[in-house]
Amino acid sequence: MLRMRFSKEGNAVWISHLDLMRLLMRAFRRAGIALKHSQGFTPHPELSLAMPLSVGISSACEIADFSLAEGETVPPEQIPDRLNAVLPEGVRVSDCYDDGQKLKYLAWLEAELTLIWDGGVPENAETAIADLLASERLLVEKHSKNGPVETDIRPMYRDVSLTRTAGTELCLRVTCAAQNPTLNPMLIDAAIRRHLPALAPDFTRCRRLRLLNAGNEPFR
């Protein structure tokens, strides 16, 4: 089993999870790197993405696990260059290795929300948001099979920091639970919109920055 890390940004953020799978499989074929195929009626390449990324969110830390076909001898360290030569803009592989940590050790995701107010950041926004996120409970509505459910997301994030990056932008960094259960960082944006409706930003951009294991070390 090999693991590669890649980024997804620019126009590529609009590519859905399933389409990204197809895109990567095609890129492997273009690069002339043979993937191991599953057995069965319609054989398909064995390739999996660790954490499905919602459409519209950019990421500097995506992970794909895959196995090479029998007889495929490409050295892992050559895979990034070979793939990058045939990937569309916005998808870039940074490294590839065979000693990746087990996925069950993936614990945290560091994310960045850029909150944008077209008319400028409201005066009390920084403190109000900081206070909200520091409160004991933070209820949001999550959509489940049985309709909306109230969920307290407070135990699922930590290390919030807020920085004003432009007259119209606040940068919110937060470390979210990556597994059991996962917290989509956009739910923090949803919480702000729900509990501070007067401060609802005009637009929120989201980006995945880094994956961490339970020991707070980079997950790789």
């Binding site: 620019g10 126009n11 590529a12 609009w14 590519i15 859905s16 389409d19 095609r26 890129a27 273009r30 459409v55 045939v86 990937l87 569309p88 803009e89 916005g90």
Partner: peptide, 8 residues
Amino acid sequence: ARYVGGEY
């Protein structure tokens, strides 16, 4: 994705 181009 169909509205942004940028394909290979």
